[in-house]
């Protein structure tokens, strides 16, 4: 099954709602090992994204995600603004002008997002960043598509992998971002960016189960 612009708009709506609902939790996670703004940052960003999409609704999935990414870069600031912004932009660019996106293309788009985040932040898996949720999600999605799973199952697998990846950051010592300043004291806390990435993939599953 192919998905269209509407699907991606629904995804963004789901993310926006999840971020709004999870804002205080994300900020608390960030207070423990960062600077207490991650929830506020993303909430501000996706509010702006909603306005941007409403002002000039894009025609293609690619254009939509590029606009989402650009808006995040323009409005969020901090580490997560450029990183999430780049992720959405790279995914959008991978989709090109295509009006509909196949599961394989979606998977390739998530891979592009991961590559963009990796390039910009130069974090490896295990550094206790959003990469620890994004990388397993990308891998799970790609595996599911290769194995011919149904789209819903594939997205379920990606969401589960992202959530597990986020949870798995708890025992890690941070090596990137602000949490790295804490050294061993960063151990025992979930990475806020990984937690928000889990919300992003949970929202993808939710968007799929909408239609």
């Amino acid at each position: 099954r192919f998905v269209n612009t509407e699907f991606f708009a629904a995804w963004i709506e789901e993310i926006t709602a999840a971020v709004r609902a999870g804002r205080d939790h994300l900020t608390e996670l960030d207070a423990a090992i960062g600077d207490a703004d991650h929830g506020t940052n993303l909430d501000r960003g996706f509010t702006a994204v909603g306005e941007a999409l409403a002002a000039a609704p894009p025609r293609t999935p690619g254009a939509l995600l590029v606009l989402v990414g650009t808006t995040l870069i323009r409005k969020v600031g901090g580490a997560s603004g450029p990183l999430y912004g780049t992720a959405f932009r790279e995914m959008g660019k991978a989709f090109g002008e295509a009006p509909e996106i196949s599961p394989a293309e979606l998977s390739a788009g998530v891979d592009a997002a991961l590559a963009g985040v990796r390039r910009l932040g130069s974090a490896a898996e295990g550094d206790k960043t959003m990469v620890d949720a994004l990388a397993p999600a990308a891998a799970a999605l790609s595996r599911a598509v290769r194995d011919g799973l149904k789209p819903e199952e594939a997205l379920e697998a990606a969401a589960t992998a992202a959530a597990e990846g986020a949870r798995a950051t708890v025992p890690l010592q941070a090596r990137k971002g602000r949490a790295s300043y804490l050294g061993p004291r960063s151990v025992g806390h979930e990475d806020p960016g990984a937690a928000s990435t889990a919300l992003v993939f949970g929202a993808l599953r939710a968007a799929a189960s909408r239609g």
Partner: peptide, 27 residues
């Protein structure tokens, strides 16, 4: 925007090696 202190410190504790963003220090 967060509405509460970034960490908690006892009446006789201090944080050493802090940054300028309310993050806890090294010890």
């Amino acid at each position: 925007a967060a509405g509460k202190p970034t960490f908690e410190l006892g009446e006789t504790e201090i944080e050493l090696g802090i940054g300028i963003h309310g993050e806890p220090g090294r010890s």
